[in-house]
Amino acid sequence: MTTNAQTDVGILARQHGRWHWSEFAFWIVVLAVGLAFPSRYLIMTEILRLALFALSLDLILGYAGIVSLGHAAFFGVGAYCAGLLSVHGLINEPVLALIVAGLAATVLGFVTSFLVIRGVDLTRLMVTLGIALLMEALAERFSNITGGTDGLQGIDIQPIFGVFAFDMFGKTGFFYSLAVLFVLFLLARTIVHSPFGLSLRAIKNNPLRAAAVGIPVNKRLIAIYTVAAFYAGIAGALFTQTTALASLDVFSFERSADLVLLLVIGGSGYLYGGLIGAAVFRMLQELFQWITPQYWMFWIGLVLVVIVMVGRHRIHAYALWLPNLILRQIAGRKAAVVLTDNEAP
């Protein structure tokens, strides 16, 4: 009896972390889309970068429940770091530069995490927002280093591993970004299905109980915030490397706000939300810019208001209605795609 129960427990506990066939399908579709539209590499690269950035926010918001309005701080540090490494020829190998840029953001994430874990939602909002504004002010102050509003001049990214040169169609950039996203996704997936990842969800659900079973709440939050900063830094560095640009707007509030929006569109707390949200968001943006080139911000705002008024959960239920119906028909079982993210009011 007990051994049976133990086996059951093991199977059920591992169930969450097992690869679902829909996940394989997802990545195959991503790759297929990449191969099918060679004329759209630039925008697809942008989506991948956004997806990585959103993955970073999902780790802290979807899993640990930390609301941030200043995630661009880490994106910006990664972007400038990659840019400066290239301009001054410090590290010419892009992958190495990428990692170094990510680590720079990690340091900032670790230092600021101590400020962020204190206090409630509102304080966190203000502190994260303040840190991003601070970074922007610093970048402006030291415009002799950062190039100010004009941005860094003379970024020239060398071939990856000295072999794959960045081409003008963005093919190298796309597959490079895809590879980086996939590797970091695998890492994030490992993290969230580990005991550590589960303890983050526990902290988000009930920090009081989490501490009362021996979970070092602050330490875990610091850890995941720091990891998320690394991810955001990598996203920023990818931005610089694939566009050869880095200017003050990498720190902008709109960047942080858009990020929250796209994660909300995709749904938080299951890792794919950021990826799907990035694609949907970017296409919406494209659509709005096509309708009203100058005033697309209005439509993005409207989307936000409507999402909140209708209710995020209801929208996801609508969006998942068709996929779930198909799943039920084909597989003859309960819906496989369910989102559960309840932020406490």
């Binding site: 093991g10 506990a13 972390g17 490992t190 299905h193 005991p195 589960l198 079973v213 021996g214």
Partner: peptide, 26 residues
């Protein structure tokens, strides 16, 4: 969370596996 996960967390934490990020639950 499920009862399985709830108890699992408490046990993992006590046996020193709670901060483990590379190993899957279960």
């Amino acid at each position: 969370l499920t009862p399985l996960e709830t108890i699992g967390l408490a046990v993992s934490e006590r046996l020193g596996g709670g901060g483990n990020w590379w190993r899957r639950m279960g």
